[in-house]
Each structure stands twice: as structure tokens, then as C-alpha cells.
């Protein structure tokens, strides 16, 4: 674990309950630097099992950067450096001997803009099981595809046209296809980076319902711009501000009775 090199102390004290019992993931003193820019500052937070935790905050506060640390997607960005400790079931995912490939199968990610591959719907979902060799034969692969699409609530809409291109679906369907694709590799945690920001209200409602159902099988971390969405889908909420984790707590409490002035200003709409 590293502390702030210059001062040797934390710059900001997070208020609320950062710890939960028996967490799925634990982050301790996580810092992210883009070159010289200190984008995430000493963040410590637990992510509870089979819970939805929402990350909210104004644009550029670092919430997306933070969740990209949780499956080491920041590795693909040059000049990006992460320090600190992130435990997934007691294993530090930033350990030197950790291979990111199986990690990313354990911690899946759904992106802001639906990004289905320019392949058929079937191949989109079968992509993960194929590269990880999860299915022994065609029948098993079919099984994976069907289960995943059912869990993502897309099966009924696409079961007759699995050979159509994934890009031919509507935006909401594409996003659910991406969720199905993520589910297909049986992750433990699903990270969602503003999954509804490119969707209309009806598609958003479907995805939100889906997130609620998925909670029974998976741990979900969702970044959202919409406070209503955070309030609707999450059990816990974390508020980020300028790279600091300001407040964490039970969603209802954070929204009805914020303890930090910054959180209160944000959720009452004074800025952001």
C-alpha cells in the first residue's frame, strides 16, 4: 500500500460506511494517475456481495476511472498508473502474478455506448465462452447463449434471429446484448459504466429492471449520471468529487439524509 508521497497523509476523509460485512471486493487507498494528473485520490471502499452499488458525482469526478480499476481496464490506457490495493475475494488483483485475462472474466464490464461486435447475435454471446473454452460442444454453447440471453431479458425478442447482426438491434437491445455477452462468461462482478446514458426512457426502464434481477446472481457496480437511477437500482451509493470519495452509505440514507455538505449540494441540484 502506498500513501501520498508528498505529505504522507490522506488528503480527504470519506464519511459514511465504507466497510460492509463479507465484501466481494475491497479497495484500499486506491490512487490513479494519468501522467501527472492525480485522478483518483486515496479511495477506500468495500463492494458488498449481491448488491448494487451506485457511483455518482459530477462529470470528471473520477467515477468511471475508478470502476475501470476494478477489472484493470485502465491497463489499456498508456501513461495510466494505479497504486493501492484492490481485493477480489481476498486476492489483490494488482498483484504482479495476477493475469488480467481470467480477472476480466470474473469482473465483467458493460460500457456507456452499446458496443456489440459486428457479428451475429449468437456469436456476440458465444464470444466469451468460446475464447475461454467453457463449452465442450455445440449443444453446450447453445445452452450458454440461451441462458445468457434469457437472463438479459433479450431471448424472447431475438430467439428467431440469432444469426442476424448484433448491430442491427435497437440501442436498448444492443445494450442488453452486451449484458448477455458479459453474463455468458459467468462473472462474479459486473461493472456498468453509465449503461443507460445512450438509451431512451423505455429501454432504460428495462435495463434497470434487469439490473435488479441480476443482483441475485452477481455483484453490480454501476456508474450513473442520473440520481433517480441510482436511487431506483442501488442498495449503496458512493459520491465522488474531484477524485475524492466523499461519502458512501445506504442509498436511502445518502439521498434522504446526506452527511457531507458536498453530497447534499450535489443531490439537491446545487451543482453537477
Amino acid at each position: 500500500m502506498e500513501t501520498n508521497e508528498s505529505t504522507g497523509q490522506k488528503g480527504f476523509q470519506t464519511v459514511g460506511e465504507t466497510k460492509v460485512e463479507n465484501p466481494r471486493m475491497t479497495c484500499r487507498d486506491v490512487n490513479v494517475y494519468y501522467g501527472d494528473k492525480h485522478a483518483i485520490k486515496h479511495v477506500g471502499i468495500d463492494i458488498g456481495r449481491n448488491q448494487v452499488i451506485a457511483m455518482i458525482g459530477p462529470s470528471g469526478c473520477g467515477k468511471s476511472t475508478f470502476i475501470r480499476c476494478l477489472n484493470r481496464m485502465n491497463d489499456t490506457i498508456p501513461r495510466c498508473r494505479v497504486t493501492g490495493e484492490i481485493l477480489l475475494d481476498d486476492t489483490n488483483i494488482y498483484d504482479r502474478d495476477i493475469d488480467v485475462v481470467p480477472l476480466r472474466a470474473q469482473v465483467g464490464m458493460v460500457f456507456q455506448k452499446p458496443n456489440p461486435f459486428p457479428k451475429s447475435i449468437y456469436d456476440n454471446v458465444a464470444y466469451g465462452p468460446r475464447i475461454h473454452g467453457l463449452a465442450q460442444n455445440k449443444a453446450e454453447l447453445d445452452e450458454y447463449v440461451e441462458t445468457s440471453l434469457k437472463r438479459a431479458g433479450l431471448w424472447e425478442e431475438v430467439k428467431d434471429r440469432l444469426d442476424h447482426s448484433g448491430t442491427s438491434l435497437s440501442g436498448g437491445q444492443q445494450q442488453r446484448l452486451c449484458i448477455a455477452r458479459t453474463i455468458a462468461v459467468s462473472p462474479e462482478v459486473i461493472l456498468m459504466d453509465e449503461p443507460c446514458s445512450a438509451l431512451d426512457p423505455i429501454a432504460t426502464a428495462k435495463i434497470e429492471g434487469l439490473i435488479d434481477e441480476l443482483r441475485t446472481h452477481y455483484t453490480i457496480v454501476i456508474v450513473t449520471h442520473s440520481m433517480q437511477q441510482a436511487a431506483r437500482v442501488s442498495q449503496r451509493t458512493a459520491y465522488f468529487h474531484m477524485g475524492d470519495l466523499v461519502e458512501v452509505g445506504i442509498t436511502d440514507k445518502v439521498f434522504t439524509n446526506p452527511r457531507h455538505k458536498l453530497t447534499e449540494d450535489y443531490i439537491t441540484g446545487r451543482f453537477g
Partner: peptide
Amino acid sequence: QSMRDGSYALGATNSETIKQVVIPA
């Protein structure tokens, strides 16, 4: 880049991503 990210996020390696997503696209 979102194509590559989508593939990496499923636990695909660099070469799998190139062979199965980038080159076909």
C-alpha cells in the same frame, strides 16, 4: 476502441481480440 474494450472486458487476450474482433471488423 469500444470494440476492443468490449473484447478485453470479456477476458480476451490481445491476440484473440485482434483475430476475432479487430481483423473481421
